[in-house]
Design a protein around this nucleic acid. Sequence first.
DNA 1: GATCACCTTTCGGCTGAACGGAACGGTATA
DNA 2: TATACCGTTCCGTTCAGCCGAAAGGTGATC
Lengths: 253, 253
Amino acid sequence: MTRSVDRAVRILLALASGTPRLGVSEIAELVDIPKPTVYTMLRTLERHALVAQETEGGKYALGPAVMQLGNAYLGGSELRARSTSWAERLARQADEAVWVAVLSGADVVVVHHAFRPDDLVQILEVGAAIPWHACALGHAIVSWLDDHEREALLGKPLRRLTGRTVTDPDTLREQLAATRERAYAVEDQEATLGDAGIAAPVSDWSGRVVGALGIVGPTERLLAADRRASLTDAVRSTARALSRELGGLTSRR
Amino acid sequence: MTRSVDRAVRILLALASGTPRLGVSEIAELVDIPKPTVYTMLRTLERHALVAQETEGGKYALGPAVMQLGNAYLGGSELRARSTSWAERLARQADEAVWVAVLSGADVVVVHHAFRPDDLVQILEVGAAIPWHACALGHAIVSWLDDHEREALLGKPLRRLTGRTVTDPDTLREQLAATRERAYAVEDQEATLGDAGIAAPVSDWSGRVVGALGIVGPTERLLAADRRASLTDAVRSTARALSRELGGLTSRR
DNA sequence: GATCACCTTTCGGCTGAACGGAACGGTATA
DNA sequence: TATACCGTTCCGTTCAGCCGAAAGGTGATC
């Protein structure tokens, strides 16, 4: 492990979480690194536009280059590339928005978003990060991780996002077991009030879970008794089809 | 300057440019750092999900965390926040797609994209990076930089993207002078064949240019003799209005 | 199936580059 | 005017990063 690199990353993450603009001293305290060290690193990061300083002698913020990295990540994502057509198809079929996501630490990050066909106001959610335990996508992924990884995630503190967020490890363990059995996950207003999700895991040729695919929308539409069965089936079979495609063309190793 | 941090960033950028998946040796050669050093750094970056290793012992790629950073950047961008309503308005008025961009090294990075109102196929271009010299947005920004910064950019090698890309520094210098005078830039198929752009610089309260705003679309529509005057006026006045807004509410320093 | 070539990964001792305490100058605040 | 806190600079010390050498895998070649 390279300490300086680790520290620099922690600085970037500090800038990414919550307050977008921070001073040297604030960062130093936040990540517990001496001020001069933080300063030197910020300057180094600034060279590459990963951070930017507002006015001379002012606070620091993330720089535009991090966006280029993000874009490059999307461009290189096998999952995203292969999922677009399937997601589109499912969005039309279910008449709901479809998200494809991967796990990043304890968060689920949306890598593709197919809009609900007839929606007018569409907010692109690509790049959004949601705590894994508060969404169906997260449950779908984590339920398929091996015991060791899953327990590591259950061990971390679990934030409550709405009144309905489940944060008890034991309850989650049960839910994950159920998810594993059914091969799909359901979430009802645990991340956002009014919104629900249905998701299924996506795996690659080796059987390892690489992400999840699911639909997101208003509770009353998604979880209506008469639609639920058909929606879960649609999600599950789409995820399976996508997994098969990822498995087939073993792709560039 | 922290050497390790600089090196780590160069590794990330290498992963971001071109081939999305690289082996340790490939990276080592690309960025000219001894293999074991690259390895250690990759492992450090992997901890934070900034890079990810496909299969165990395989090649490395950017990780999902870089997307979170990108998203955080967008969320904290004053320019983006203030530009949305203006961009929307201009998109309706001009009936064309509107882009807002900032400079990142020698590239222009799109931070906001307002769709052309009646377009059906809409590709979200947020995060896209375009060499500054090949687009109106880039010209608008660079023309307003101070001499020193501008010359530094003109000194770097300028890539040709289409047959019409201007890559001669002297020609560019003239174009930039003209842009500075008119307070808007025009580009015709220099980045993409068939597409043109009209853009104007956006500055903050201190007068420093912070980005640019412009319309993008098919050459025949954008540069039609009868529309051009009204379009350039619309772009210019929108950019000015946005600048004024950024100037007014000095915002959180 | 043995050899080869190339990979990623591990190890450890040397050394110079990163670190951080202390001080500086500028700028809001009382 | 005094104070407090900021970003920034300085520079000697030291310990962490560096990287040559070697190990352990893996897939191709003959």
